[in-house]
Nucleic acid binder design. Structure first.
Lengths: 155, 155
DNA sequence: ATTGACGTTTACGTAAACGTTAACTATGAC
DNA sequence: GTCATAGTTAACGTTTACGTAAACGTCAAT
C-alpha cells in the first residue's frame, strides 16, 4: 500500500522533470474503491463526510472522490493512527483550507502549526521511550533464550 | 490535550539521600495524590482497576498505591497518548507479568515484543511524516510573512 | 456533634466512532 | 423485464472511556 501522499495542499511549486501523471491527478474514485484501498468500510468514509472531514463531488446522489479527496482520506487515517480524534484532525485539515491571504490568518496558521508540532514531538518522545523499552525486552529475552541453547528465531 | 505533570516527579524533601531510592521505592500514594500528579480523576484510576490494568493494595476498602503502581499508571497514560486502547495496553502490561521461566512463554514474549515494536515503528514513520509536513508549513508561512515585512514572532 | 475532606460502591449517562440492518434507487447485463 | 451490483438515506445498536450523581463510611478538627 504505497502512500505517496504529498503535503496536503500541494502548492504547484515546481514541475520538475516530468509532468507528474496528469491522468493520476484527474482520477476519480468510487467509495468502494477507496474503502478497499484503505481497508475501511464505506460507512466510515460517509461518516467522515458527515463530520465535515470530506466533501466529495456528487453526481446525483453518488459520491465521486478526487485524488485530493483520496489524499485527505489517507491523511485522516494517519492522524487516527497517531491517536488524534476526528475533531482534532478536522481542525488541522481546516487549517489548510483557510484563506491564507490575510496576515492575521497566516499568523494563526503559524501559531497552530507550531502548537501541533510541539504535540507531535512530545508524542515522539513517548514513542521513542516505548520503543527503547521494548527493544530492551527483546534483547534480554533473546539473550536468555540463546543462553539456554534455544534458537530465538525458530518461530 | 492538557500538558500533564512531570514524568518522574520526586519530592526533593527528606533526609540524606544516600542510596538512590530506598525511601522512594517504599512510598505509597493515595488515589487523590496520583490523580493530581497525572492530572486525571480518581474515577479514571478506579476505572483502570476495573479493567484490570491496576491492582493496588488495600487497607480495608481504601486503595494504597505503591511506586510500582504509580509507574504502571504513568505507562498506561503514555500508551494512551500514543493512541493505544486500554485493552491493548493491558495486554502489553500483562506481558511482563507472565511467567518468564518457560521457554514457550519467553518465545511468546519475544514474538509479541517484536510485533509491538513493528507497530511502534510504523507509528514513528507516520509521526515523522506529519512533523515534516507541518515544519514545511511553518517554514513557508514564516517566510511569506517575512517577505511581507511582518515579524512572525510577535504573538 | 456537626462539618469537611477524603475515601468507598453502585449505577445510570454520555460522546466518539463507527457497525448494522432496513428500505430504497440507479445502472448495466442478460 | 428482471436480476445483480453498487450506490443511497435513515435510524437504531455497540464499544470504549470515562463523567456524574447518590448514598454511605472514616477520621480530624471545630
Amino acid at each position: 500500500m504505497p502512500d505517496a501522499a504529498s503535503p496536503i495542499a500541494a502548492p504547484p511549486k515546481a514541475s520538475a522533470a516530468k509532468t507528474p501523471a496528469p491522468r493520476d491527478t484527474q482520477r476519480i474514485f468510487s467509495i468502494a474503491e477507496l474503502a478497499r484501498e484503505f481497508a475501511i468500510t464505506a460507512r466510515t468514509i460517509r461518516f467522515y463526510e458527515d463530520e465535515g472531514l470530506l466533501k466529495p463531488r456528487r453526481q446525483g446522489l453518488t459520491r465521486l472522490y478526487s485524488a485530493g479527496d483520496r489524499t485527505k482520506l489517507s491523511w485522516i487515517l494517519r492522524g487516527k493512527r497517531l491517536g488524534f480524534s476526528l475533531a482534532e484532525i478536522k481542525e488541522l485539515l481546516d487549517l489548510y483550507g483557510v484563506d491564507r491571504t490575510g496576515v492575521q490568518q497566516m499568523r494563526e496558521l503559524l501559531r497552530r502549526s507550531r502548537l501541533h508540532i510541539a504535540d507531535l514531538e512530545r508524542k515522539r518522545r513517548d514513542l521513542d521511550a516505548q520503543i527503547g523499552e521494548f527493544k530492551d525486552v527483546e534483547a534480554h529475552v533473546a539473550a536468555e533464550l540463546k543462553q539456554r541453547g534455544v534458537n530465538p528465531e525458530s518461530d
